[in-house]
Amino acid sequence: MFRKYLKVASVVYQEGTQYRLQYVASFLCVIFPLLAVVFLWRTVFQDIQMIEGFTESMMITYYILVALLTDLVSPGIMMYITEDIREGTLSKYLLRPISRRWYHFSEEIGISLGYSLVALIVILGFIFLFAVDFYFPANLLYIPLFLVSVGLSMVLGTGLTYLFSLSAFWLEEDTGLDYVLEYLVPILTGALIPLALLPEFVYQVASFLPFKYLLYFPIEIFLERITLSEIGYGLFTQILWIGVIYLLGAWVWRRGCRRYTARGG
């Protein structure tokens, strides 16, 4: 049962490696912005010791983790379903004995894992090459907690991606939603800048949204910025969000399909 989804994931991964030049380029695309951001913070920390509890080493580690995790949890790859819906190719999936949602879930995981694996290697190289003062948690208990949280982020991220792509059932043309997501999501996940640095009011808003749990929360664990009880509370909230998003996804999917078939797509 689960094997066929695994198969989908591996096929997608292999397709990704076929375009080698593009593959290499896409990793350099991760490295260069990271490089600039690291240099920028190094310069900022010349005059200041600490910003909102972040030391220079923590800040740089923060951005390295962002670079590493973004592909894993990114709700950025939403074109597939959108395309299928707009071009009417969705029908072929509706007819197949593989649940559309799981199909895409495995597809996403395949892509993400493939990219992240190489990104990990590249970034490790980066750490050594630039003699980055990488912050490693002193309390080793935080590592498994971080990993658990990342795992949950991936599930949450896929759910969110899925939910957004279903909007294509209602929005027949490009409405710029992609742009809004592309630029707003990095603020809300903390990819742009740690949420703690944002003005209090923005921070409060971001805390009420699920995006925070994609990047900011796991990284906070890694940097030991929150207590164990806060982590427990956070993991609980993460699971809660996953439940909400997937129930919502299932509901929207059913509504969408009804609409799709009613239109005779």
Binding site: V44, Q46, G176, Y179, Y183, L184, L192, L197, L198
Partner: peptide
């Protein structure tokens, strides 16, 4: 999209300057 991109960049630097008077 262009406006958003510009807005985000400004926001990024604005936030940094909330915490430091200068960048180098």
């Amino acid at each position: 999209g262009n406006l958003l991109r510009l807005g985000i960049t400004i926001l990024f630097f604005q936030v940094i300057f909330l915490h430091t008077p200068t960048i180098g």
